[in-house]
Write a protein that binds this DNA or RNA. Structure first.
Lengths: 83, 83
DNA sequence: TCATTTTATGAGAAGTGGCGAATATTTTCA
DNA sequence: TGAAAATATTCGCCACTTCTCATAAAATGA
């Protein structure tokens, strides 16, 4: 249940989880993101060659965003980094 | 000086900043990421259609990673979200 | 200023995303 | 169990990445 996103597969899993939390199906998410249901499917299954702009559109539709942080940090350490 | 990454341009700027902090040029970063100097250049200038795997390779080479978090949150709110 | 380093740009080839449209497969649930 | 809904897959098509190789433009520093 992490929000960490190091691989396309992890990103796809997080997208799927967020979508289901909102009670949306892939078609509904696609509509909001300006993408096709098939494209959402590919992303959720971990398409490694997805376009950056496509991923960003999906996150925006879910009201999510990327943060770029140091790897291998504990959550406590992140607090340090934030301030 | 934010780590927020909503657009390809923001991601490119953050990549460039992290690269320079390490004292690397684009060729050196490319070598570490298994990519060409030209590709690093495109990413840093905000290529919107870059491949997800390419961006992830660059972040890994910089020892960085994505986090997926809710949009429009204050930093204080993030602390809440972390725990 | 000038030479060196660094970054950006160019053409062509190969590979693939996302599209439209259609369909197969799987999952859900009455 | 069976029908409906949801998700995954396929084909042709165009756009565009990333690659190799080459070079132009810009930035750096003595």
């Amino acid at each position: 249940m992490t929000d960490l996103a190091r691989t396309p597969k992890q990103i796809g899993t997080l997208v799927q989880r967020a979508r289901k939390q909102r009670g949306w199906n892939q078609t509904q998410l696609g509509d909001k993101a300006g993408l096709r249901q098939e494209t959402i499917s590919l992303i959720e299954t971990g398409n490694p060659a997805a376009r950056l702009e496509t991923i960003l559109a999906v996150l925006a539709a879910l009201d999510l965003e990327f943060r770029i942080v140091p790897r291998s940090t504990s959550r406590a350490a992140d607090i340090e980094a934030i301030f």
